[in-house]
Design a protein around this nucleic acid. Sequence first.
DNA 1: CGACGCATTGAAGAGAATCAACCGGTGTGG
DNA 2: CCACACCGGTTGATTCTCTTCAATGCGTCG
Lengths: 243, 243
Amino acid sequence: MDGNGLVARMSRLSPLAASEAKAIAGLEGRQRSWRRGAYLQRENDRADELFILRDGWAIAATLLNDGSRQIVQVHLPGELMGSANLLATRVPQSLCAVTEVTAAVIDRGALARLMKDHPRLAAYFLALAELDRLAMADRIASLGRGSGRARIAAFLIDLMIRLRRLDPVVENSFAMRLTQEQIGDATGLTAVHVNRMMRALVDDGLVTRDGAVVVVKDEPQLMRLAHFVDRGSIDTSWIPAPV
Amino acid sequence: MDGNGLVARMSRLSPLAASEAKAIAGLEGRQRSWRRGAYLQRENDRADELFILRDGWAIAATLLNDGSRQIVQVHLPGELMGSANLLATRVPQSLCAVTEVTAAVIDRGALARLMKDHPRLAAYFLALAELDRLAMADRIASLGRGSGRARIAAFLIDLMIRLRRLDPVVENSFAMRLTQEQIGDATGLTAVHVNRMMRALVDDGLVTRDGAVVVVKDEPQLMRLAHFVDRGSIDTSWIPAPV
DNA sequence: CGACGCATTGAAGAGAATCAACCGGTGTGG
DNA sequence: CCACACCGGTTGATTCTCTTCAATGCGTCG
């Protein structure tokens, strides 16, 4: 019931019936912690668990057969992780703790029962999935057409906006919890080049850095460089009302 | 009821009740055709329609603010297009006919009514969305970490496998309906480089070409180059059974 | 026929990867 | 308590991939 559980997240999309909220909250019971660098799940594991990130940052990543790694997404607290495990029988992407992490573990079967008991809730999961697809499409555009600088800019902007949504205290700065190597794996660049592009952003006066803290000095300009588009408001009126 | 409507696609995921099948089929009534190059919808249009591609190829693409274009996905017959329009109020990606195209037009409101009347169906749309997310994650990996050759290889393999699923007559060859410019917009390369990478694949004996027809000569090798991973079987047992 | 769209090829230039070295902080074991 | 290892960030030099610019050819269609 704190602000970043699944119940809260879903309520924000559309009101939940009390029974539904209770059923969802029931899912989130089992909780575990992982230390920095630990894997919540590995590629090709049996896909029998999903997670809700409670605290810390985590990444979803695939290893390519040449040894390189691509980070598919960076998860922040409150997010559902491993939702592909609903459909897949084998885990498609590893989940790895970037910081110390706490997450609720959801049994795949329990989630299936939830949807059997409350079919309407599938619409909520659909909404979450569609939201994520929107974000993924933007990431595809950034990777496909952005220069190194643009990719880093997009990456920083994305993180900042999401952190801001999570906690309005975040104004124009945040603590970067990823190493430059990880940023490279997320943006399709090498760690060395990430370093240079970061520096370039600093030299251009778009951001400053103090240790791990990134301060965005010129947000509009950074957004322009990142080809950022505000996806605007979303509409969830199509989610059926509770009976 | 032909093999590539939404009813057929969803039945394949999990059996539909007769009433549900009928309701879905009702959605697909209105049908339209577009000629090659025409837009089914443009970015920033009001997001009030979705489409089911009946015939032809279509692409979903975003324009970046520097004028470049990124093709986010290539749609083949039978696929649901513009599903982001459920959630978004403005169209995030243009849909453009690559060939002459026929598609069923689904009113957003009608889809909302469908889910109100048959809440269980949201689970089907969720399954489709998750399937698509799996594919998008692989595309992100290809764009982020693949060389030019690897991206082209992945692009070709992906298309061939999807066409094969659509029509088992497809063995190891298919007609490429996209221009090299479009392939470039999909893979994040320039048209010129697409041309060279295609030639490189031919020179290596992995594929041959005859006009628009691409023949895959060494599928295992091409898959290896593409970092292809078979996502294996999918499990839809979590979709609630019909009442 | 001539314009146009698309594929192709060459040459030059920019952007990113690679290789290699160094630095500061942190943690650890002797 | 210090020496050392290790991790992550930084910088330079070089190499290579991909882009850019430009020109040519080929088929189609008005």
